[in-house]
Design a protein around this nucleic acid. Sequence first.
DNA 1: GTGATTTTTTACCCTATGGTAATTTTCTTT
DNA 2: AAAGAAAATTACCATAGGGTAAAAAATCAC
Lengths: 189, 189
Amino acid sequence: MLAEILKKSFDKYFNAPVKAWEEFANFCKPVTFEKDEIIKQQDTTEKYFYFILTGSAGIFLWKENNFVCLDFAFENNFCCDYMSLLLRQSTPLQLVALEKSEMVKIASETFYKLGQTPVGQIIVQISAETSFIEKQQQQIELLTKTAEERYKILYDKFPGIDQRVAQKYIASYLGITPQSLSRIRSTSK
Amino acid sequence: MLAEILKKSFDKYFNAPVKAWEEFANFCKPVTFEKDEIIKQQDTTEKYFYFILTGSAGIFLWKENNFVCLDFAFENNFCCDYMSLLLRQSTPLQLVALEKSEMVKIASETFYKLGQTPVGQIIVQISAETSFIEKQQQQIELLTKTAEERYKILYDKFPGIDQRVAQKYIASYLGITPQSLSRIRSTSK
DNA sequence: GTGATTTTTTACCCTATGGTAATTTTCTTT
DNA sequence: AAAGAAAATTACCATAGGGTAAAAAATCAC
């Protein structure tokens, strides 16, 4: 069942064999989070790789009482402090549930071992590759689009995100203040 | 010899076994480029993965007579249109030699096959992972630093870059105009 | 449901950066 | 070395978005 959800969720990105997803699903443990619950605290090392069944999460970087959101994740997608997971080091990044969420998690050590198996390796490899591509896409948007255009792109990517995620988080993701986002939303609507 | 350079260049990032680098080096073919020579044209599919022995290169995105530089690469580092290589699709990205350069290249098909061998797979996996981490770092800089701070970070990362790479390229990487960079350079020096 | 807290909106002025254009400097080509 | 082309600088005004503050709206806690 979980394996099917996983496969279905990722077939648009890449075709890992069913067997790979079954192997993956075998290691998954269910876990729930409340809204605003901190899943991974800053300056710790990521211990899990999560898949969101329902709800959402955000990756945050804090600097002196301020934060930016580096990415959002919603149902049927992975999330974690991927940088920490890969470097096996603590990072200043925080993973936060933005809504009441149901997820499954696999332990980081299991994730690493999965990378050594022929089938699981495909998932591990492609999750790194797609993560890179999405980050590069974000970089392109930051370099070539206005805040208003970036807002529209985000909204197209996650329709209804403004109903689910606090605007201050969206604003920080866009690289602007909540006030600016509010202005953009009022003039473009 | 090449295997040693490769291993030495990347030991700071990750420890692939000598054998992996020897395997890698076996597939490398030397190639040279003139300054401003287009290595990969936009709207084509990346056919090679390059390692720079001397010189430098940049990845550019064009939009209506304008461009941004998404990344620079110098000697002892890889470069290519990695997104195109991974997706095996054409992209609007251009790879350009920024100086007269000596590189070695391995064919994309060989690179893919390398990912299926136990030793080469480590290099392929880790190149995706480090690429993601560096892109996320760039995103953080764009979201949290001023143009002037980003310039200093870039300069610290690549000392002397301003002597080797045209300022218009550096400015586009920073997300500002050449005029703004000129102003920043004159006031902060 | 009521009060308290947090978030969003609105408004004001300010600053970093953009756009255009002209000038100077540097690089190319012969 | 000279001429031409391209790049960098400077200057001017324009604008997107920031900072602060206060009001309004939404959410939370009891």
